[in-house]
Design a protein around this nucleic acid. Structure first.
Lengths: 148, 148
DNA sequence: ATGACTATAAACCTATCTTTATATCGTCAT
DNA sequence: ATGACGATATAAAGATAGGTTTATAGTCAT
């Protein structure tokens, strides 16, 4: 449901939150602790720099760090560079072309509940919420069935 | 959320239900009507024969047809040959190893609601339900949050 | 009637292209 | 010089296409 790459991105960011605060964290270090293949992770982290989730500083003592506080980063932001289904609104999987909200195919509504469940999850859940080992700390309540 | 291939499989089966009943339908015909690349579809349909969803007869007048009544076929059956996430139970996307139902990470429960929503959908929804153009005709009610 | 021919259609095998996952090398900062 | 990011190449998987083989059913001449 979430691609390997997407999961790597999430896990790396979670680690950065836990490693909290001060110094930057090298890619190699994150890879070691999270069990993600080091070289591949470096590419992923690079993408997260491009979209503005991470900051990178090179050279000795450099590494990656979150650009904004984790309470302000939604999972959607971390995942969307890697999950095409989150970027372009995928069409109805049951019909060829002619299936919209206006003339829905059977199953359309039920499917949207599922799809929206996923989308709302990554859209409302913050990085802080999944990283803090304490209480759920849900910043925004999950609302279901929001119509598009 | 559902792979291209999985969507093709669903759409082809839906077409077979609509084309209802009697004669077998050639792969080329299905491809033409559903807009699915013909050669690729033939491979997909072959897979669906292997798992017992479809019957195939060769030669003139041959083609594909459903092996069982569509009210008896769950979407899960059609999708599982193509969606690895439906076959092997994917682990928690937020943590490395140590995250179970017993010691859940934050976000674990919310994520399971989303994941179960998807799984229950494909598990409960029948092919007939998404193919009949009339009322939803939901055979089994969707239950949510069933714990594993 | 019956064998041969032909049209039809699935099955199979391989080749290409795109996306995803991974490794190698180069570049920059201290 | 060394630690660490960055861009580029390779590998594997998913998606697509081409062509050949095999099986079946109808047709047609003898």
């Amino acid at each position: 449901m979430i691609s390997q790459t997407g999961q790597y991105a999430l896990r790396a960011c979670v680690y950065l939150v836990q490693q909290a605060g001060d110094a930057a964290c090298s890619g190699a270090r994150i890879a070691g602790r999270t069990g993600i293949p080091a070289k591949y992770l470096s590419k992923i982290l690079g993408d997260l720099v491009h979209v503005g989730v991470l900051d990178a500083t090179r050279g000795k003592g450099g590494g990656f760090r979150l650009r904004r506080p984790p309470t302000d980063i939604r999972l959607l932001e971390i995942l969307s560079p890697f999950e095409s289904s989150l970027r372009d609104d995928t069409a109805c999987p049951f019909r060829h072309g002619e299936c919209s909200s206006r003339s829905p195919c059977p199953g359309h509504d039920q499917w949207r509940i599922v799809k929206d469940g996923f989308r709302n999850f990554v859209q409302d859940m913050t990085l802080a919420a999944i990283a803090t080992s304490s209480a759920p700390a849900r910043t925004a309540p999950l609302r279901k069935g929001r119509r598009t």
